[in-house]
Write a protein that binds this DNA or RNA. Structure first.
Lengths: 248, 248
DNA sequence: GCTCTAGTTTGATTTAAATCAAAACAAGAT
DNA sequence: ATCTTGTTTTGATTTAAATCAAACTAGAGC
């Protein structure tokens, strides 16, 4: 599914929280013990924290790339502008997820990232990450898993190819649900931060189609829709009926 | 667009070809000088070469992951089976491209890879790659670019979301053309190794739609179709008319 | 409170692609 | 060569989604 946090699922060291001077050490803590020196190295890795207000951009396509960003709080969307001016949404990103992985390829950002609500990010200078990764192999390995997960996530979107509108939308909702759950929020009751049009762009559908599909799911009693608030009434039914969908 | 070879575009060292005992050192050669010891390290990295006959699998979804594979010759498709039995094609892979990047995420292959013609691959044990990467930073960095390029590639496919059948198909053909060109083959005249059905699965369309779209392009004089052989008659027109398309 | 705007819902109609169906074709096996 | 079998093309029809259009809603600012 998603790059998620830099924190491995089984982060089993008594995480160095106490000494965390920098903002996202929690995400970076590794499933292995770190010695004093390594902790200091990590401390230097993630040293800048930025506030991005709703509507502001974290980066824009074409700008040169230096740092990855971990979402600390808030919500982002990434998108590209096609030559005809249409905006194509390429992803939505919530706390713990990493932005900028696409830019490593050519040292240039390939998409725009904008905050959908007031947000905070941590900056991770990529050169530093590669440097420190050399001395902390498990950190490097963990980073590779994050990149790979991003590939799996995008691949999952491709698999919506054969599905119809309602199925795609359910897949999308289940995906959000899953990601919220992993962050400790309710998987059954959440707020969409994006518009119908943005969802449509992401799923390759028009906004009216999204609206109709939501209404249909509500008629069927599977979900409740109150503007941007979504309640999943029968998540098992959703999962069964719409199969693979949850694409993790 | 695609993970392409492990060889950076500007592979400017008088590549160690002479000493290449292993099969894909050429791909691994780096844009920096390597000392004697480093060359020996690389030599150990890529030491196995496998022949995969048409129809045989390189790996299957669910199997545990140990090695990446670089396509040496031939042509592969990757796909997943959905619970309803439908096959969803996730990619086509030509010489120089890397297979298995998705599997790093969970140490498990997430897709099946099958040879569409008799092929050869080089095996790169991933643990070894990470180990050697630690001592050759530029190798590690190059690997990160390859992973990132894979993300960009998949992202590019997502962007076909808003396009119609003909446009998607042209984007697909231009993409193949581009990749063939980079490998020294004609970008204007090539053979599709996959069926219309596989193209359709990849693009989220039915095989009849692919067939009709090809016929349409031929009627318009833009391409020539002779079964699997494709000739692009007016690649500039194709690029202009179908825009972004070439999604590199 | 009201107004204005951006976003959403719903309906009527059109259009692109899926589906159903059959014929034509190519390649491999015998 | 002929018989398969799998693939491709083309046509007729249906269907899902896009498009066009209008009404409705929520929220921001006055």
């Amino acid at each position: 599914m998603s790059p998620d946090s830099l924190m491995p699922k089984n982060c089993n060291i008594p995480c160095i929280k106490a000494r965390c001077s920098s903002c996202s050490l929690r995400e970076l803590c590794l499933p292995v013990g770190l010695d004093e020196q390594e902790v200091r190295a990590l401390d230097h890795l993630v040293n800048q924290r930025h506030k991005i207000r709703r509507g502001e951009h974290l980066h824009r396509a074409g700008l040169s790339f230096h740092s990855l960003h971990v979402v600390r709080s808030g919500f982002f969307k990434t998108y590209v502008l096609q030559e005809d001016g249409r905006e194509q949404v390429t992803g939505f990103h919530m706390p713990g997820e990493v932005l900028g992985l696409d830019a490593i390829s050519a040292d240039t950002h390939t998409c725009n990232a904008v905050a959908l609500e007031d947000s905070e990010v941590c900056e991770i200078p990529f050169a530093k990450l590669e440097g420190i990764g050399r001395t902390i192999p498990s950190l490097m390995h963990h980073f590779h898993k994050i990149m790979s997960r991003e590939i799996v996530r995008d691949r999952g979107m491709l698999m919506l190819g054969g599905m119809k509108a309602g199925e795609r939308l359910v897949a999308f909702l289940l995906n959000l649900s899953h990601r919220f759950a992993k962050r400790g929020y309710s998987p059954l009751d959440f707020n969409l931060r994006m518009t119908r049009e943005e969802i449509g762009s992401y799923l390759g559908l028009k906004l009216e189609t999204i609206s109709r599909a939501l209404s249909r799911l509500q008629e069927d009693g599977l979900i409740n829709v109150d503007n941007k608030r979504i309640r999943l009434n029968d998540i098992d039914h959703l999962r069964r009926q719409y199969g693979s969908s949850s694409y993790e």
